[in-house]
Amino acid sequence: MVVDLVLIGTAITLGPIHNSAFILLLSADRGVRKGLAFILSWLGSLVLVIAAVILLTGGTPPARQSVPSTAALVAKLALGVGLVVYGEHKRRSPPRPRRSPKWMAGLDRASGWAAAGLAVLLQPWAMVGAGAATAVRADLSSVASTLALTGFCVLATSSLLAMELYATFSPVSAGAKLRGLLSWLDSHQDQAIVSLSLLLGLWLVTNSIYQLVR
Rank of each mutant, 00 (worst) to 15 (best):
L5S: 00
L5H: 02
V6A: 03
I8M: 05
T10P: 00
I12Q: 02
N19M: 05
A21R: 09
F22M: 11
I23H: 09
L24C: 05
L26N: 09
R33N: 14
K34Q: 07
G35D: 09
L40F: 07
L46A: 02
V47E: 06
L48F: 13
V49R: 00
V53S: 00
I54A: 09
T57M: 07
G59A: 04
T60P: 03
T60L: 13
P62N: 05
S66M: 08
P68W: 11
P68Q: 05
S69N: 11
L73F: 15
V74P: 01
A75D: 04
L77P: 02
L77A: 08
L79Q: 00
L79I: 10
G82C: 09
L83Y: 10
K90D: 15
R91Y: 13
R91T: 06
A105W: 08
A105M: 06
D108T: 15
R109F: 15
A116E: 02
A116C: 03
G117I: 07
G117M: 01
L118F: 10
A119C: 02
A119T: 09
L121A: 07
P124Q: 12
W125L: 07
W125G: 04
A126Q: 07
A126T: 07
A126V: 07
G129K: 01
A132D: 07
A132Y: 12
T134P: 05
T134H: 01
A135I: 00
V136Y: 04
R137L: 07
L140G: 04
V143H: 03
A144T: 03
A144H: 03
S145Q: 00
S145I: 02
A148H: 01
T157L: 15
L160F: 14
L160R: 00
A162G: 06
A162P: 00
M163R: 14
E164F: 15
Y166D: 13
A167R: 14
F169H: 08
S170P: 02
S170R: 12
V172G: 12
S173D: 13
G175K: 11
G175S: 10
A176M: 14
K177P: 03
L178V: 10
L181Q: 15
L182P: 03
S183A: 10
S183P: 01
H188M: 07
H188D: 12
V194T: 15
S195H: 08
L196I: 14
L204M: 15
T206G: 14
I209K: 11
L212I: 12
L212D: 03
V213D: 12
